[in-house]
Design a protein around this nucleic acid. Structure first.
Lengths: 148, 148
DNA sequence: GAATTATGCTTGCACATGCAAGCACTTTGC
DNA sequence: GCAAAGTGCTTGCATGTGCAAGCATAATTC
């Protein structure tokens, strides 16, 4: 099965790269944010308390902590997120979405969904979509924290 | 169906990112190359004439032409690829894999396949794997040049 | 066939990112 | 309780990447 697994992994990367590249262009042009900024806000929204520490975000986004620090700075400046220090542990600095950030995320999500619809098109029937969803769910099962 | 398509797209990105991150670590540690260098050589091997121009590579890899120029330079230096100017059109500069490059790709592919096997695990039966392959094939169908 | 336009590649600059070091704070071990 | 180790965050430096400009070569137009 190695050959088929290899092929599937290549296709997976290919499809994801294609989708990400297209998304990057539209998110930048229409909403003025990068894919990573979009994903950062998405992670916040999907988190338990609507806020995450920098290291938590770093882990979830496969990115270094310093990157989160440097991503958050301009996002704070334009009012998409805020900084919140933990009362009990002064080391923890949470990133939390502002109202403006949530609004921006909602807009960007619409773009994302439009592209998702376009990706899967209308030639997939409901049963296939569910099947695909179940397969993807199994692939992320091992991973700890996930978006969907 | 928008919700399910959206979820599937998120999962797709998530799975691909996870896989890519793990692959990056092992390719770097074991073979001393980046994921993009691996993909560059893979594109060369899968191309018609075993060589591609810089712009062709750029298109296929979702990367700018200048990035290819700058990726190729060190790869030439360590002997993984060679530079070949087209006889008819002096503007075209092809990137072509050397014997050492092909050997390195083969090693790296083994690592890739091992990770692909690990990703899909042994809980997928042959029918499911084929089904998943067919679905991915449909998703790349629109794309022009692909790896697999 | 000369001028214009188009194409491929490279380079300067700006920006994003990872790594390692450093700092602040907390937890552990005694 | 204090020292040592651990954890979270930030910053300096090095590297990777895109964009726009520039250069060389082809193709097109007249």
């Amino acid at each position: 099965m190695t050959d088929m697994n290899t092929t599937n992994a290549m296709r997976l990367l290919q499809v994801a790269d294609d989708f990400r590249a297209g998304l990057a262009g539209e998110l930048s042009a229409v909403h003025g944010i990068s894919v990573n900024e979009f994903l950062l806000m998405l992670h916040l929204e999907r988190s338990a308390a609507n806020r995450l520490s920098r290291v938590e975000l770093a882990k979830r986004m496969h990115v270094s902590a310093s990157t989160i620090t440097r991503m958050a700075a301009p996002m704070e400046k334009i009012g998409l997120v805020d900084r919140e220090v933990d009362a009990r542990d002064a080391r923890l600095v949470f990133v939390v979405a502002t109202a403006a950030g949530k609004a921006k995320l909602a807009e960007a999500l619409a773009t994302f969904s439009k592209r998702a619809d376009y990706l899967f098109g209308d030639r997939w029937d409901e049963k296939e979509i569910d099947q695909f969803a179940a397969m993807l769910r199994r692939l992320i099962a091992g991973t700890g924290d996930r978006l969907a």
